[in-house]
């Protein structure tokens, strides 16, 4: 092949690639524009934006509360079970007849059952941790998407909550106040409850 032919062919190839690249670029730009328009249409208080900024972190915080609470409870149960086992062992070493020993052994195996049942915390904790990971990564992906569409996360307002809506929710019952945002205006102890009701004669 002549050198000139080679140059022509090379140029033709570059042109083809450039055309294809610019088509691709156009398409990507189109997709980005569509996404931006769609998110824009939602408005900065849209459900998706709200859920990404507030709903998902809130869900994660609640799941972490579940793990923490079940862990504390399981640990308490395990400590108590261990103490009982120690007591039963002392009792066993002092037992004089077989009937007593059999009785103690039965009690020990029941305590073991209690201890074994606490393994639920490990199992459920692992499952919840996986869900937390998934929710967190979903949250990050959505954040990136929102960012790329030109909306700043700081521009998404806090959820607008009317007094009526808040009251309706409270009357349904909202469960334990485990997230930072839900811990406003909450009593801290039974004493607080008693003080509040004491004035009303209850």
């Amino acid at each position: 092949m002549e050198k000139e032919d080679y140059d022509n062919a090379s140029q033709a190839l570059d042109d083809i690639i450039a055309t294809r690249d610019s088509n691709l670029l156009e398409q990507v730009e189109q997709i980005a524009q569509n996404l931006h328009d769609t998110l824009e249409q939602f408005g900065s208080d849209s459900m998706l934006l709200q859920q990404t900024k507030h709903g998902l972190p809130d869900a994660t915080e609640r799941l972490e509360y579940v793990i923490q609470t079940t862990e504390e409870a399981s640990n308490k149960t395990l400590s108590a079970a261990e103490n009982i086992i120690a007591l039963l062992e002392t009792l066993e070493s002092q037992a004089t007849d077989d009937a007593q020993k059999e009785f103690i052994n039965k009690a020990q195996s029941e305590v073991t059952e209690i201890m074994m049942a606490q393994s639920f915390q490990d199992l459920t904790g692992q499952v919840l941790n996986r869900v937390i990971m998934l929710v967190t990564s979903l949250e990050q992906s959505l954040m990136e998407l929102i960012n790329k569409s030109g909306i700043h996360i700081d521009d998404i307002p806090d959820p607008a909550e009317s007094d009526e809506k808040r009251k309706a929710e409270e009357m349904r019952g909202i469960g334990p106040n485990v997230t930072k945002s839900s811990q406003q205006n909450v009593v801290n102890s039974q004493d607080d409850v008693d003080d509040l009701l004491g004035d009303l004669g209850i």
């Binding site: 009251k167 409270e170 019952g173 909202i174 205006n185 909450v186 009593v187 509040l196 009701l197 209850i202």
Partner: peptide, 18 residues
């Protein structure tokens, strides 16, 4: 349920203890 507003609401509804 530990919101002050909820406890007061319960009192208003006639709860004897909380």
């Amino acid at each position: 349920e530990a919101k002050r507003s909820q406890i007061l609401e319960a009192a208003e509804a006639g709860v004897d203890g909380y």
